[in-house]
Amino acid sequence: MSHQFKPGDLALVINHTYPPAIGLCVELVSRHLVGPVDRRNPMDPGVYEQAKGDPIWVVAEMEGQADCIVWEKWIMPLRGDFAPEQQKSEAVLA
Rank of each mutant, 00 (worst) to 15 (best):
Y48P: 04
E61A: 11
P19G: 04
N41T: 05
E27T: 15
G80Q: 03
S89M: 13
D44W: 08
P20T: 05
E85A: 03
P20M: 02
V92I: 15
M62A: 11
H32D: 10
A94Q: 13
S30C: 15
D38M: 03
S2M: 04
Y18W: 07
P77T: 03
D67Y: 07
I14W: 02
D54I: 10
F5I: 05
K73C: 08
P19R: 02
G46W: 00
P36I: 00
V59M: 10
W71T: 07
E63N: 15
P36C: 01
A66C: 09
W57C: 10
E63I: 11
K52Y: 08
K73E: 12
R40K: 14
N41P: 03
W57S: 07
L78Y: 03
V92S: 12
Q86H: 05
D54R: 13
I22Y: 05
P45K: 08
M1Y: 13
N15T: 00
E85W: 00
F82W: 09
Q65S: 11
G35H: 02
D54V: 14
E27A: 15
W71N: 10
C68R: 11
L24C: 15
D67E: 12
P77R: 06
L93W: 12
P19W: 02
A66I: 11
D67I: 04
G35L: 03
G64W: 10
R39F: 14
T17I: 15
A94W: 08
P77V: 06
P20Y: 00
P19H: 01
E90G: 01
P42S: 09
G35S: 08
E63V: 10
M62T: 14
P77F: 09
E27L: 15
D9M: 09
N15G: 02
V59C: 13
V70Y: 01
A83Y: 06
F82K: 05
A94E: 13
P84K: 00
P36Y: 01
R40V: 06
P20D: 04
G35C: 03
T17F: 09
Q65D: 10
I22C: 04
Q50W: 01
R79N: 11
T17G: 15
Q87E: 07
A94H: 13
M43L: 14
V58A: 05
G35V: 00
V26Y: 02
S2N: 10
Q65F: 09
R79A: 12
R31W: 03
K52G: 06
A11R: 04
V29S: 04
V13E: 02
A83Q: 07
P7V: 07
N15I: 00
E49R: 14
P77K: 06
Q86V: 06
V29T: 03
Q50R: 14
S2Y: 01
N15Q: 06
C25A: 12
A66F: 11
A51S: 08
V13F: 05
M76P: 00
I56L: 00
E61C: 12
V70R: 03
R31V: 04
Q4A: 15
D9N: 12
V58H: 07
I14F: 05
H16V: 02
P7L: 09
E49G: 11
K6I: 02
A51I: 08
A21V: 09
A91W: 10
D67N: 12
V59I: 14
E27H: 14
V59R: 03
V29W: 01
A51T: 14
H32T: 14
V34I: 13
